[in-house]
Amino acid sequence: MAMISIEKVSKTYKGSTRPALDAVSIEIETGDFVFLVGASGSGKSSLLRMMLREDVPSKGSIFVLGENLISIPARRVPYFRRNIGMVFQDFRLLPNKTVAQNVAFCLEVIGKSPSFIAEAVPAVLKLVGLDGKQDRYPNELSGGEQQRVALARAIVNKPQLLLADEPTGNLDPATSQEIVNLLERISAAGTTVVMATHDRGIVDRLKRRVVVLKDGQIVSDSRGVGYETAEAAR
């Protein structure tokens, strides 16, 4: 079974007549690296929220990591999310905790042992290139460094799936490239990555699978092409 299997998913939010997602179907295999592209309001974030089960579709079916996200009981949702990492455009770090504490926090709250945390946190900080900065506070870091902390937090529990919602949206091109390089390394290690973006440069350089969304519908789904080609292919 595919890692993510979405069929005819629609979502209409209250107070809105136009659906945020309109009969979207997509399959993502284990180990894939997928870009979700499209203008603001095209449904990229909504789709990612569905995959994390932050939201439930109005119609359709969605399976992620073998879980039926329509019928999963609320008490199982936290355990389902432990297999998924997620990063955002705005980093979402805790300002009153240091880099190491921010990463450790997400292990503490899922009940990992102190000895596990003591080993895992320095290792993952080294992986994302933040060794030596573990005692800094988020406001002492650059945007790129903050996103590295967020990435470290997302992957420290070795998730099978990494969701990234415009992770480079607040970063300059050079820093963005570093973050994407990190995502590629994470992907190469076997983690499935789904990244929403409208950074053409990145999409064009990487030549990965590109799924184009427009007005809540998938208008193209192509492999090994750039943004323009994918857009033109529809």
């Binding site: 994390l52 609320a74 008490r75 949702v77 936290p78 355990y79 389902f80 999310r81 432990r82 998924i84 997620m86 979402r92 805790l94 300002p95 926090f105 997400c106 709250v109 899922i110 009940g111 937090r153 529990n157």
Partner: peptide, 17 residues
Amino acid sequence: RRELGIMRLVGASNFYI
């Protein structure tokens, strides 16, 4: 709310939250 958001994101159990 920031802590709560992150706890829910990384899968802390409802009981723990």
